[in-house]
Write a protein that binds this DNA or RNA. Structure first.
Lengths: 169, 169
DNA sequence: GTGGATGCAAAGACTTTGCAGCATC
DNA sequence: GATGCTGCAAAGTCTTTGCATCCAC
């Protein structure tokens, strides 16, 4: 029989601990607003922008100013809990970073759905390309724009070409 | 001896013809400003933003309003002569599309250099991933951020981590 | 009690748009 | 000569910042 280990805290809590540690290290304070934002972000599950988050909190009765939302998102990005991405939008998109998980994106140009995927062979191919160029990779972002299976056949092919050329990654 | 063919016009001219055709098709007019912008864009050779282009033209004596620069870049994007990209910047970056050429980017986080590359095996791997997901790819963008060979060893490792987390693709 | 945090509103950066006069087709 | 184009300035959108007040430590 293996000896009992101390119970492993759930992931949520790990991010909370991490954020609190980050705040302490930088002599910053844990405020109610920061707590509320962290928990909203961790519970979101997909991509969001600053304003959507701001409005969602307002609807839940948590009135936090837009400025604080931006300031706190910036902190969360700095300590690695949140990733900032544009995904072809004008405004910044954010997403909670699931620990140890990196992924790339398929983005449907019809319904806007974002499909996340991870392929080890894609990662290693990129590493090989970097090695060939004597380039030290630190981060990457791959976005494939197209039409998802559910939208096939429902798309007006005519304005698709125009929209492809308008993509702004 | 093979028979002589009609001389192949240089690439520059092909883009001009394409733009003029686009304008005609859409009942738009070929103005001096549009001509100047097209030629400036084709002669640029790397990435630029709207304001840099605007200022470069002003220095050459071509005073074209910022509004027209934006409006014309939009047309050039629509007809496929120019690609719009962010490359991790706040403001939109543009680049002339060399015909038949697609490439991805290695971006040096120290000196800002952008290295373009193309790998057929990377393209086909992406196609395979899309096929598996029943996703029809139309466009993609891969940006790898890191340190170029010239900057290796010259970088302050400390603030690098912070800068990696700040990347906004 | 002190230093950092918040909210507000103002400022900023980048881009788009309305309109009167102008140029191309 | 009609229709679309330009420049200008104003408005828009998203984000950041200055400052007085407030609160976690």
């Amino acid at each position: 029989m293996t000896p009992r280990l101390a119970p492993v805290p759930p992931d949520r809590s790990a991010d909370q601990v991490r954020f609190e540690g980050f705040l302490r290290t930088h002599q910053l304070k844990l405020t109610g607003e920061r707590r509320a934002l962290l928990s909203a972000v961790l519970g979101w599950g997909s991509h969001f922008d600053a304003d959507t988050l701001h409005m969602a909190l307002k609807q839940k009765g948590e009135t936090i100013s837009r400025a604080t939302v931006y300031r706190t998102l910036d902190l969360l990005v700095q300590c690695g809990i949140v990733r900032k991405d544009s995904l072809g939008h004008q405004q910044a998109q954010y997403e909670a970073v699931k620990p140890g998980e990196h992924h790339d994106h398929l983005i449907c140009m019809n319904c806007g759905k974002v499909i996340e995927f991870f392929r080890e062979d894609l990662e290693s191919l990129q590493d090989a390309i970097c090695a060939q160029q004597k380039f030290k990779p630190l981060h990457h972002s791959l976005q494939i724009f197209g039409i998802c299976s559910a939208c096939k056949g429902k798309v007006d092919e005519k304005d698709l070409a125009a929209r492809v050329s308008q993509i702004h990654t």
